[in-house]
Nucleic acid binder design. Structure first.
Lengths: 213, 213
DNA sequence: CTTTATTCTCTACAACTATAGAAAATAAAC
DNA sequence: GTTTATTTTCTATAGTTGTAGAGAATAAAG
């Protein structure tokens, strides 16, 4: 058996022999290299050879950690999702209502180089997901979580009296989510450097719309 | 010379010999086949062989009409864009203000099978455009046109007194455009059949938001 | 240094790709 | 039917891809 499953080697099960590589950590290294390649050269440039090279290895070195390319890509995409969600959790912690809503959106919007790169990752992911139900399910689940969080913040904001619009919260949440997704596209397709399309102004404008009954 | 440029053969320049195929029409046939393949099997399934087969030809028959695959894809994407824009023009004709705005959005939103298929085309296009400046430019130009149209309708709607929100029209136009793009993603990634995510309700809700100062 | 299990490199391979171009089929004009 | 230019098929090619697996390199333990 050449390939150890996640965290199987953390407990030191083969004491007779040296354990050199932390498989989980190596997987993250490889995912990071993949991420960089896709952001720089697009999904089509992310061949196994190129990924291995970027990570500093030769052609076949990926196999023990990811049996197939699809495994690697799925793990890579999932990792970006998780990281974004962690950032969201950390930024909205302790906040509620409009403050939480604003923090949430500012964290998702492609307002700096790093998040613009994430937008360049998520679009290839969507393209794969269009014809891959398993990847589509990852997306569906994340979006459901996001919608729930947005609705929660909206409800709090209504209690604060800062959202008074005569439109159902579920509808508002859908609008806001779609605005966030659309911003990803605009940012990813904008010529390098000239990025900001006033996404922050759009967010503030939308919060203004919500405030008036 | 085997490949005639667009509409070069409409005037009958070689009267000595039979002219059998209308090159422009054949190009549209091939683009249609391409469209069907991408909608059904994704961009990765759209190989030259598969496209030729779908159109009822053998492997090499595409060459006289499109010298390279990239030429074909670019033409195909451009054609979908043009068709959508024509539909928009036809639907908003004679309308103005909120009516025109609503018609515009309803025509773009993925509310029926055909437009959901268009969403399944545009996502692969975006993915290509992320690393292809020429395709990105096609997108940029279309979006600029759309933004201009939306702003025009918003201004009319303000004159009618049906838009009274205290937010700049440019910002509103950006919000609405991003909502439309986001809806494409949601629709393209939704499991087949279960499509409608309440996009029409989102539109009506947004128009409600705009109406109140 | 020897042993030993792991990790990595390297080569190989089968599948598939876009593309090129020779040859065959085609259909109007005579 | 014959001619003629066009249209299409068919085969070939050069390149790339994911994957497999043998062997070398590696590093800890004795």
């Amino acid at each position: 058996m050449a390939h150890k499953s996640l965290s199987e080697n953390l407990s030191g099960e083969w004491p007779a022999v040296p354990k050199i590589v932390d498989h989980d950590e190596r997987r993250l290294e490889l995912v990071d290299a993949t991420w960089r390649i896709i952001a720089r050269n697009g999904l089509e440039g992310a061949t196994m050879r190129e990924i291995a090279l970027e990570a500093g290895f030769a052609n076949g070195a990926l196999k023990p950690y990811f049996p197939t390319k699809d495994t690697l890509l799925e793990f890579a995409f999932g990792h970006v999702f998780n990281r974004t969600n962690q950032r969201i959790a950390s930024v909205t912690e302790g906040k509620s209502g409009v403050d939480a809503l604003r923090a949430f959106c500012l964290e998702v919007l492609p307002l700096d180089e790093e998040r613009i790169n994430e937008a360049r990752i998520v679009i290839p992911f969507w393209q794969k997901a269009v014809n891959d139900p398993q990847k589509a399910e990852i997306h569906r689940q994340s979006m459901e979580e996001w919608l729930a969080a947005i609705r929660r913040h909206l409800a709090e904001a209504r209690d604060e009296g800062k959202v008074r619009a005569a439109v159902d919260d579920s509808v508002l949440a859908g609008q806001l989510l779609n605005m966030l997704l659309g911003a990803q596209i605009e940012a990813a397709l904008a010529p390098a450097g000239q990025a900001n399309f006033g996404h922050d102004a759009q967010l503030e404008g939308y919060l203004t719309l919500l405030a008036h009954p």
